[in-house]
Design a protein around this nucleic acid. Sequence first.
DNA 1: CGCGCAGTTGATTAGGTTCAAGGGATGTGG
DNA 2: CCACATCCCTTGAACCTAATCAACTGCGCG
Lengths: 235, 235
Amino acid sequence: MSGQTDCGCDNCHNKMCVSRVPIFNGLETDELRKVAALIMKRKYAKGEFMSLEGDPTDHLVIIETGRVKVFRYTPEGKEQILYIFSKGDFFGEKNLLSDRKSTYDVEALEDTDVCMIGRNEFQMLLREYPVIGIKVIQELSGRLENVENAVQSMGTKDVESRISGILLDFAGKYGKQHPRGILVDLPLSREGIANFIGTTRETVSRKLGLLQDEGVIEMIGNKKILVLKKDSLKI
Amino acid sequence: MSGQTDCGCDNCHNKMCVSRVPIFNGLETDELRKVAALIMKRKYAKGEFMSLEGDPTDHLVIIETGRVKVFRYTPEGKEQILYIFSKGDFFGEKNLLSDRKSTYDVEALEDTDVCMIGRNEFQMLLREYPVIGIKVIQELSGRLENVENAVQSMGTKDVESRISGILLDFAGKYGKQHPRGILVDLPLSREGIANFIGTTRETVSRKLGLLQDEGVIEMIGNKKILVLKKDSLKI
DNA sequence: CGCGCAGTTGATTAGGTTCAAGGGATGTGG
DNA sequence: CCACATCCCTTGAACCTAATCAACTGCGCG
C-alpha cells in the first residue's frame, strides 16, 4: 500500500483530496498523510445550507466538488452575495483563529462534497507547519483582492460594465471551449447575478438581452451562456 | 538599560513601536526585542506617495502615527478608495509572500511615521514565530470583513445610508467626546468621501447638508463634523 | 402535459449624475 | 494680522440610468 498514490482506502483518498487543496501545497508527501488523517468528509445536497450567519462554526471547510454561494442579508432582507466558491476554496477560517461567529450564510448551489478539519486540529497544523499559515495568508490575500475588485467595480462602474465583468469572471472559472466561443455554466439565476453585483433581476435581464442583440453572447436556456465575443466584454 | 521599558535608544524605541502593533501582540518581551532589531523607521510628509500600483514593494509597512489612504484608479481615471489606514494598520504583505506587485496606491493624508520590515526578515519571522502568521491571518480576516461590509453597503444601500455608515465608522475611529456629541476629525475631503463610497462630491455635499438640516450632525469648517445624534445615523 | 417559478418586457418614477455657477474656507505672503 | 488667491465646497437645473411596479411569457420539472 505505502508508496502507491491511491490504494483506495479512506486515508489515501483523503490524501488525494488534501493534495489538491492550495493551502496544503507546500507540504511533503508524509506531511500530507498526517493532514489527511485529520480530514472528515461530508456531502451537501443542492439547496442545503452549510453554515448560517451567527454560527460558531468550528471547522475549516474545503470544497472538493460543487459550487456554493456565500452571502448575507441586510436587515431589510436584501441578499448580497459575496463569493461563489468552488473546488479548492475554503471557508470558516475566521472562526477558527478567534472566537468570532460566522458573518455570512453559505448555501450549496449544487450537490457538493467537502473536506473538513476541526478547530483544534487546524490550530495544531498551523503551529506545526508555518508554511500552511503562509499559504492561508496568500489565499486570503487573493480573496481580499477579489473583494477589492468588487468594491471598485461597484463604486466606479455602471451596471453594464459590472455584468460584463462577472461574465468574464464566470467564463474564466466555469467556461469550456466551444466551437463558437466559451460555453459558461452559470452558477446563479438572474436574481442571483443581480444580488452579486448590486442591481435588480429586471436590469440583469435587460442588459443580457442587449448583449445578445449585439451578438456578444448567446443565451442557451436560462442556465448557460455562450460567450461569442469575449473581447467585447472588456471592462 | 535592560529591564527598563524605554532607555531612549533606537532599539528600545523600536520595541515600543513594535509592541503597539497587533500582529506582534502574541510575542514575549525578548522576542519583541529581536523583532525591534529588524525594524526600520521612516517618515512621510502629507501628500507624499508611499507606494504606487505596480510597485514590487519589498517591505511590510506598519503605520505608527498618521493616516494614509489606499486607493486605485480605473482605466478611465476614477479613484476608488479602499482603506483609510492609521496606527497599527499595515500594508505590503501581499508582495512579501508571493511575487505579486502592489495592486494599489498609498498616499499619506497627513505627516506619517512608519515602521518597516524587509521581505527576508519578515519571512524569517513568520517561520520562526508561527503566532505572527496567525495574527496576520486574523488581521487579514478583519480587513476582509471590512471590505465585505463595503460590498454589501454599495450593493444594497442608497447613498444616504452609505454616508451615515461612513460617518459612524469615522466617529468610531477618529471621534473624540465633546459636550454635544462626538467630534470627528475627517480624514478625507468631500470628494475623498465620495470616492470611498462610490458617489460624487456634489451628492456627498447635498446629503451632509440634509443631515445637518435634520440636526443629526453639525459641520465645523470642512474638516470636522460634530455628530449630535449618533443613533440617527443607524444604517 | 401542465403547473409553477424564473425570466422578460413595458411604463413610470425616483435617485443620483452631470454641467454650470457662485460662495466660503484655508493658508500663505506681505 | 489682514488681504488675497486658491481650492474646496455648495447650490441649482436638466438629464439619465436604473429601480419599481405590473403584466405577460416560457423554461424546466414533476
